[in-house]
Design a protein around this nucleic acid. Sequence first.
RNA 1: GGGCGCGUAGCUCAAUUGGCAGAGCAAGUGACUCUUAAUCACUAGGUUGUAGGUUCGAUUCCUACCGCGCUCACCA
Length: 505
Amino acid sequence: MSLEDDLLKQRLARVREIEALGYRAYGRRYDFTHTIPEILGAYGSKTAEELTPEVRVRVAGRMMTVRHMGKAGFAHLQQNGERLQIYVKKDAVGERDFQLFKMLDIGDIIGVEGYLFRTRTGELSIHAEKLEFLSKTLLSMPEKWHGLEDVETRYRQRYLDLIANPEVRKVFITRARIISSLRRQLEARDFIEVETPMMQPLYGGAAARPFVTHHNTLDIDLYLRIAPELYLKRLVVGGLERVYEINRNFRNEGLSTHHNPEFTMLEFYQAYTDYLGLMDFSEALLKQAALDAAGSTDVDFDGQRLDFSHLERYTMREAVVRFWEGEDRPATEDVASPEWLRSHSRKPTAGEALTDIFEQRVESKLIQPTIIYDYPVETSPLSKTKPDDPAFVERFEIYAAGMEIGNAYTELNDPQEQRRRFDMQLAMRERGDEEAHQMDEDYVRALAYAMPPAGGEGIGIDRLTMILTGSRSIRDVILFPLLRPEGPIDLVREMRELDEGGAPA
RNA sequence: GGGCGCGUAGCUCAAUUGGCAGAGCAAGUGACUCUUAAUCACUAGGUUGUAGGUUCGAUUCCUACCGCGCUCACCA
């Protein structure tokens, strides 16, 4: 017989004891007067004298510690990540509530009514006069001092992580703040939030392998989107001149500290601007997001101080020259020379070679928030070329802490040119490039109805959150990151056995 | 997919050269009406990730597998 078995048996017996005392083991509505953070905020700095006349409160929370002393005891209740002590004295709560108090387990959820006071050691506490039982834990909580440290358990059982590790809760609150900051800023500029299909008959808008699913009634395969881009631009054609979407993309790729197969992107499109306009906008967006999330434009990440008050800007060629480390630093003429580029990369074209060299030698060095602009045309089938150099497109990416966090360009709105680019991608696909873009004829048709000139941008919410919360792994900013399925848990089997065989002990 | 590392009680961690698997917290019983990592006494809790192998003897050494982490590859 396992411990878990024993514990379960004990706890299930306790449920019956609690009910025998006349309480519900799984309670219902509890009308509280304050949340615990509200009490700490309002009375945390009040002296004992200032707590008279009596401040009466009703609060609910999860019991995290308990100290019994015969006919009295202390416990801490936790709610919304903060803790408040309660003092339960038999004389004050009466026989029945005190019986209940003695039966409580760490992790149980209770309601307490009483008045605020300060203990001899000065801690703000509730002098309990009435207890209510609200919900019973059947399993034991993580260790009270070290918390829950096992990384696998933290990701698999995020609820335990959130209970035991208050800083985890803060990360996800910051994540929510970042998203709401971005939303607020977009709304202030008259962007409209939309939702476009996540299940798509054709996938596009990025270079990636998709997940495939199936619709039974229509009997067709559908792809989970790798990007919302092509749908959002159809909306720009339709006259939604400023649109955005914040939602999930799915890419069938490996996992790493910077990649989760489903991840959250903000994508927005603005008619009548171009990538230069988006650079200015990006700077404002990120600056304000940092202020709203971290309280400052200076953000500490992994021992570095990142300055979000502005974005440095380099062309891709400039960046290769500037951030090159080691010998043979190229000159400005070198990075413009197809011969030099091809001699420093195995990629077939000068443009792909430049991108390759940039990714190999520069990307990880871009610690400060930086815009890299002017990309080779080969890897950008949806962006507009530079008027004075058709080998390059008006595109930029935003980097920080060595990671790509944003991607933007002046949108290609010439349908004939777009058709030619798709044809090029089809040729690449023929040659075996699984990630080459598919032909999307309806998208070409949409452009054929005239899309206003526009700029579009995507910002990776997970990676931005990593940076603004100091998280080194993307799994620390995704509540339920993808993991291999867990083995048998066995809890249900044990509960079933205890339920069937389980006459009251 | 490759390399490296980790996996011991519900949680956090020990275990000498291969020699009786331990502690704290959590749990149970008892004492205690201002404690706060409460204290004190006693009790229970283990197929050492799984399966093999070497050995008189394996938590320890070897092999395979499972899970997780880091890293490389992959990933505009």
